[in-house]
Design a protein around this nucleic acid. Structure first.
Length: 932
RNA sequence: GCCCGGGUGGUGGAAUGGCAGACACGGCCGCCUUAAAAGCGGCUGCCUUACGAGGCGUGCGGGUUCGAGACCCGCCCCGGGCACCA
């Protein structure tokens, strides 16, 4: 494009790139987006929104990776920015902060490779992100920004850990309480101690007993230990064949002392409080499934002198239990297995072995050799008889006990009672092993296979005829009465493994004394600052040495590990905990710190927390008003954050019992990638389309669809878009291309449409040739005025529902109506500029200034529609005859139904052709339907 | 296999059970220009057309209704999640 021939004052990328940094600087200088707190150092009674209704909107904060942002990342940020700019103009005191989740593995791995300290990498990445976000004109209150790696921030992460450590869950009142109250109950004898009375316990025994009750506790837990890498790996980092994804070294399961968090204590509340939340149903469902509460019963089956306890959700089917299955790894297997097969053992049950011991050993070897995937994918049921029989407590029948890998050692009790009549897996197994099948729920006539539906009990003695729910309750009562079992609830959710053998994470505020028991450091010793180390590489071992001991990076820093502290009984030697916290820790509570980021005395001041996040009414959970992020965090992040929040609530530190009242999942922006004939990815930018086919350097290429990424050579960055079009155009395009929650492909060539729209808006105010103000004070034509007010009403409605794409479509329509008019009337243009400002804030500020306003429009009132202008002057009714539109009539809005009917029938008289309509339906304000 | 989303023009997408395809991209035509770009204006679901219009159209097959893209039943396809959860 030749610069000299473009009109001098046209809105171009060059002009946008002049306007945008100028307004960004102006906003920063004037603190335009500072939100006032009710109290503390961020209070500001003179602020235009001090004391106004509040709105707390938050994005899931990013991990600042070295690659920087691509155009998909800021989609949600621009959405919340547009929404909050609108709400701020509409009168709300808006809190919209942004921070950085900056602890994490990539920076540590980069450090291992290059020796660069993760703090250096992280700081550089945070700066880069900040620059990129600033360039987009996002209206954050920058005083409230932080990174989870800031010692002033993780001081409070550590403080929360000590709060969790110093509390226990009181099952009676379903609430966490401080540890001193537990000690008081033990001392007073109001709470029994398990073996000896409290007074007879030694100090160390007392500490162990208390430690067993803490919400944060040390336990042996299995981990994936990879000696070749010298690190413990997450499950995702282990390949299905049990090797490390990186380096392909063997990985061993071994147990290690680990910090755990007792999230299972909160299972019921985590499930039940979902009902109070305005979250997408699929996310709630995923959380419910993840927690996996099942109600049923534990039932005891005697086997000789031993007892196999099973968990079942269907105690009502106990009469149909015809065999039992233990997980191959179950501890009772060896005890109950006899030396010989019982007389008359079915050949099919023995696996062809001469005695049960050999059969079990062979089956275990077989199961162990299978990967988890093979074990779970195989549809065919395998297993082997143990040679033992158990007694079904309800009818005294002897039933055989098998081992089979379809029963998982890690779930429930690792043993099941098998009811083939009502369970598909048991049915399949029973068919293979020729086991009896007894139906205990009446199946519909002709039904084949396991019946899991509702029906009356049959073949069940005293349960016969009862429905499932009634039969369950009756059976549980019977089991409890006769001592054969008890009602029980089990959960799939496990306690949260909270320690990592890494460097780049929050150190634990924990030391150990000579007893080896943990002690939480007092508040005044926080933060425990992460020390510098010289070498970030873990110590590696012989890849096959399963018995090697993992060594954390911090454990090698002896002068840090060994400390002298006065914890109340004089200076003593202690050793520090050398694990660090997982990346989840910092993101588990950051929503609270934004409220009061500078508070050095408390995590968050009570008044500030109550104002921004407190419950709005009885029964309301409180929490962030709108939390926007991807569904990939549906379970872990959101569950952990809810758990911590509830602990803080129980201990009285916050007034809200949920962190996020409303959740919105934004979609993803994805992109096409292209491969040449060799299957090699080619740069997407240089691929051209001709007749529905794609070519790179004139050679045909194939197209695929997926995430943006370096390896697919299809990354488009916001920086490029800002250069080529300006941030405002980029923002408008992202918001206009579809609803926020829908994923869609990126298409750079379509961005031009948003630029054309902004150019037309600009041209309504500024003469492109002279730069003079074009806007006049002439009043609008009545029809245009009506269009304006319809637009205002529609845009407000769309904005409230986060339907930015349709709001922008309405603004474009208004603009296209105004563009050809002889006079650019201020009456329409000022509202148009204000309504465009949430999407294109720099352009709007610039035009607002040109229109003669001295201040930012950030606090100008959002236009309001005049109800009188929303009334239509006439209504056009389409007239359908047998479902097809055959004519239309225009009537006044006041026309009565019979008038509309008459007019409509007259309009289609020709089609009706003298016939008598069977039916005439007049839908007020909509249409007329004639049936003949 | 189970659970959750979703299938509408060449493309992204609009549409409280009431005129399907708003708005935008792309394409075609025109204005401006020596020319091109930018900008502006028009046309653009498919088929037929005597240019008035008519027929067919929201993954497929049924149904409810005066009326279905939307509601119900049965399938097909795509995307995401879970993995024998007793």
């Amino acid at each position: 494009m030749s610069e000299s021939e473009t009109p001098r004052f046209r809105y171009t990328a060059a002009l946008a790139n002049e306007i945008e940094p100028r307004w960004q600087a102006w906003w920063a200088e004037h603190g335009t987006f500072h939100a006032p707190n009710p109290s503390g150092d961020l209070a500001d009674p003179a602020h235009p929104r001090a004391g106004a209704p509040k709105l707390h909107v938050q994005d899931m904060f990013p991990y600042p990776s070295g690659a920087g942002l691509h155009v998909g990342h800021p989609l949600g940020y621009i959405g919340t920015d547009s929404y909050t700019r609108y709400k701020r103009m509409a009168g709300y005191n808006v809190l919209h902060p942004m921070g950085f989740d900056a602890f994490g593995l990539p920076a540590e791995q980069y450090a291992v490779q290059t020796g660069t300290h993760p703090a250096v990498t992280t700081a550089a990445n945070v700066e880069r992100y900040k620059t990129q976000l600033r360039r987009l004109g996002l209206a954050y209150d920058d005083r409230r920004s932080f990174a989870t790696t800031d010692p002033e921030y993780y001081r409070w992460t550590q403080w929360i850990f000590t709060q969790v450590f110093n509390s226990w869950y009181d099952e009676k009142i379903h609430k966490a309480r401080p540890i001193p109250e537990l000690i008081a109950e033990f001392e007073a004898g109001t709470r029994p101690t398990p073996e000896q009375p409290w007074s007879e316990l030694s100090p160390v025994e007392r500490r162990k007993l208390i430690d067993d009750h803490r919400l944060a506790y040390v336990s042996e837990a299995p981990v994936n230990w990879c000696p070749g890498l010298g690190t413990v790996l997450a499950n995702e980092e282990v390949t299905p064949d049990g090797r490390s994804e990186r380096g392909n070294y063997p990985v061993f399961q071994r147990s290690l002392k680990q910090w755990m968090m007792r999230i299972t204590a909160y299972c019921d509340r985590l499930i039940e409080d979902l009902d109070t939340l305005d979250w997408p149903e699929p996310v709630k469902l995923m959380q419910r499934n993840w927690i996996g509460r099942s109600k049923g019963a534990h039932v005891d089956f005697p086997v000789g002198a031993d007892t196999i306890t099973v968990f079942t959700t269907r105690p009502d089917t106990l009469f149909g239990a015809t065999y039992m299955v233990l997980a191959p790894e179950h501890e009772l297997v060896d005890k109950i297995t006899p030396a010989e097969w019982p007389a008359g053992t079915n050949r099919a049950w023995t696996g062809g072995h001469d005695d049960p011991g050999a059969a079990i050993a062979a089956y275990r070897a077989l199961a162990a050799a299978k990967t988890d995937e093979e074990r779970t994918e195989s549809k065919e049921k395998t297993g082997v008889f143990t040679g033992a029989f158990a007694t079904n407590p309800v009818n005294g029948k002897e039933i055989p006990v098998f081992i089979a890998d379809y029963v998982l050692a890690g779930y429930g009790t690792g043993a099941i009672m098998a009811v083939p009549g009502q369970d598909e897996r048991d049915w399949a197994f029973a068919e293979v092993f020729e086991l009896p099948i007894i139906r205990t729920v009446k199946a519909p006539d002709g039904f084949e296979g396991a019946y899991t539906g509702e029906g009356p009990a049959i073949n069940s003695d005293w349960l016969d005829g009862k429905g499932i729910a009634e039969a369950k309750a009756a059976m549980i009562a019977w089991l409890e009465l006769h001592g054969h079992g008890r009602g029980a609830t089990t959960y799939r959710l496990r306690d949260w493994l909270f320690s990592r053998q890494r460097y780049w994470g929050e150190p634990f505020p924990i030391v150990y004394d000579e007893t080896g028991l943990p002690i939480a450091l007092p508040d005044e010793m926080l933060p425990v600052v992460l020390p510098d180390v010289d070498d970030f590489s873990p110590r590696t071992f012989d890849p096959d040495d399963a018995n090697s001991e993992p060594e954390t990076p911090l454990s090698r820093k002896k002068d840090w590990v060994n400390v002298e502290l006065d914890l109340g009984d004089g200076l003593k030697s202690y050793t520090r905990e050398t694990n660090t916290m997982p990346q989840w820790a910092g993101s588990c509570w950051y929503e609270l710190r934004y409220l009061d980021p500078k508070n050095e005395k408390e995590l968050v001041g009570a008044e500030n927390e109550a104002y921004w996040m407190g419950p709005a009414r009885d029964g309301d959970s409180g929490g962030v008003d709108l939390y926007v992020g991807g569904v990939e965090h549906a379970v872990l992040h959101l569950l952990y954050a809810r758990f911590w929040h509830k602990v803080l609530y129980d201990l009285g530190h916050v007034s809200s019992f949920e962190p996020f009242r409303k959740l919105f999942n934004q979609g993803y922006i994805q992109a096409y990638a292209f491969r040449d004939a060799r299957g090699v990815i080619v740069p997407a930018e240089e691929v051209v389309e001709r007749d529905g086919k794609w070519f790179y350097n004139d050679a045909p290429v194939t197209r695929e669809y997926g995430k943006m990424g370096k390896s697919l050579k299809n990354v488009v960055t916001p920086d490029e878009m800002c250069e080529q079009y300006g941030a405002d155009t980029f923002r408008v395009y992202e918001m206009a291309m579809g609803p926020l929650d829908v994923s869609r492909p990126w298409e750079t060539r379509a961005v031009i449409g948003s630029q054309r729209f902004l150019q037309r808006v600009w041209r309504l105010v500024v003469d492109e040739e002279t730069g003079a103000l074009r806007t006049t004070d002439e009043p609008l034509e009545p029809a245009v005025r009506k269009h304006l007010h319809r637009t205002i009403a529609g845009v407000r409605e769309d904005m409230d529902e986060l339907r930015f794409n349709t709001a922008i479509a309405k603004l474009i329509e208004l603009t296209n109506t105004l563009t050809p008019l002889p006079s650019a009337s201020r009456e329409a243009i000022e509202p148009l500029v204000l309504m465009t400002s949430p999407f294109a804030p720099h352009l709007a500020e610039e035009l607002w200034r040109k229109l003669g306003h001295q201040d930012s429009l950030a606090y100008a009132g959002f236009p309001e529609a005049d109800p009188a202008q929303l009334k239509a002057e006439s209504i056009t009714y389409p007239v359908q005859v047998n479902g097809k539109v055959r004519g239309r009539v225009e009537v006044t809005p006041e026309a009565s139904e019979s008038e509309v009917r008459e007019a409509a029938l007259a309009a289609v008289a020709e089609v009706i052709d003298g016939r008598t309509p069977k039916k005439v339906i007049v839908v007020a304000g909509r249409l007329v339907s004639v049936v003949i």
